[in-house]
Design a protein around this nucleic acid. Structure first.
Lengths: 209, 209
DNA sequence: GTCTATAGGATGATAGAC
DNA sequence: GTCTATCATCCTATAGAC
């Protein structure tokens, strides 16, 4: 059905804010994109900044909530969680490829606000992602720091979306071709992550033998 | 010695543009940061946009020129080049941690302009990075796509700088502590990259045996 | 709820004195 | 080359009619 005015504004604002950022987005553009009168934006959301906060929080949720839920599940092992995580992220980001650079940009200008708004600190403590991973690496005889592990995992998963414009332009690829490439990585990244852990555990085993 | 007015403006503009982006940076802020009169900005650079283009091009050069030079050297093998590249990037980015998110952001809003401005297309053809890597992977019996290889290498190297604000905030780390963590990666990433290639070559060898 | 009209303020750029 | 003063424009937000 035809979405109501409030939803039309939110959808238009999400598109523009995520692609252009806060300062470069005009309320007039949002109104035009939504096909509504400029005054209605303030009627429904009181101010540009308030509307922005709402969009921002939702984008941020998409980016982190899913990951937390995967790690909250106590039925699955870490190895399985990694596959689920990569699959989830790549799937989500193929639908909304602009979210990573938007989130990265906001984190740079206002890191604490976002982390707090999403309730990250408590969530991180609850799920205990760090000790899950720490334990997993230990069990596999690897001496890798959990931080490096997470940076590698997220780097391999998320970075391609950030670099997509450069790669498409430099390689002369169509958006669709690059998307297929990224979809392949759903299955490849878990294998690569595994190889990295083995590299560290092999080194450790020769030391202890 | 005391830098002259033109240099003061450029330095201030570089700081503000790279941290806030084009739209969020006011010419008045640049003037204040540089400690000069607002009118001088237009006297030396004619317009905000022109000043921005200059800063942007220089940032972009830092980001890509060094990498190209490493791959242009015909005396070194690919494996050595990877170590040099990782070392170069992490070293440079520890000095200017804001460059990646700035470049990423500009690439999103205007991909072709940047690539062209830096003369990337010709440079990429000249150095032939792709076929160097392609050949290297083949020699090592890996069936990995060169694109994936490059995405992994850059993802592991650059992504941590993009995620730094989030990680520092989420983990409660000081900037200095996180920098040390990133410096460690200079030596670690080449090892991990090697492990990933081995993972692919092992799979290939069991297929052909 | 939706529109028009406009207030109120900030911004990029320049004219003109020194 | 550097300053002050100011213009023209654009932007967010709101008042008030319907």
């Amino acid at each position: 059905m035809e979405p109501n005015t409030e939803e039309k504004i939110k959808a238009a604002a999400a598109r523009l804010f995520t692609t252009r950022g806060f300062a470069a987005t005009r309320t007039r553009d949002i109104a035009a994109e939504a096909g509504i009168n400029l005054a209605l934006l303030n009627y429904y959301f009181r101010s540009k900044e308030n509307l922005y906060r709402i969009i921002m929080a939702e984008n941020f949720q998409v980016f982190f909530r899913g990951a937390l839920q995967i790690f909250q599940n106590q039925e699955t092992g870490v190895q399985e969680k990694i596959s689920l995580l990569v699959d989830y992220y790549i799937g989500r980001l193929l639908e909304n490829p602009d979210i990573p650079s938007f989130v990265i940009n906001e984190l740079r200008t206002n890191p604490n606000a976002l982390i707090q708004q999403a309730g990250m600190h408590e969530a991180l403590k609850d799920t205990n992602i760090f000790s899950q991973i720490s334990q997993y690496l230990e069990d596999r005889g690897s001496d890798m720091e959990p931080v490096h592990f997470i940076l590698n995992l997220l780097g391999m998963t998320i970075f391609p979306f950030l670099a997509a414009p450069a790669f498409q332009s430099a390689l002369g690829l169509e958006k669709e071709q690059f998307s297929q490439l990224l979809a392949q990585r759903k299955k490849l990244i878990p294998v690569w992550i595994d190889a990295i852990i083995n590299a560290n555990s092999l080194k450790a085993s020769t030391h202890t033998s």
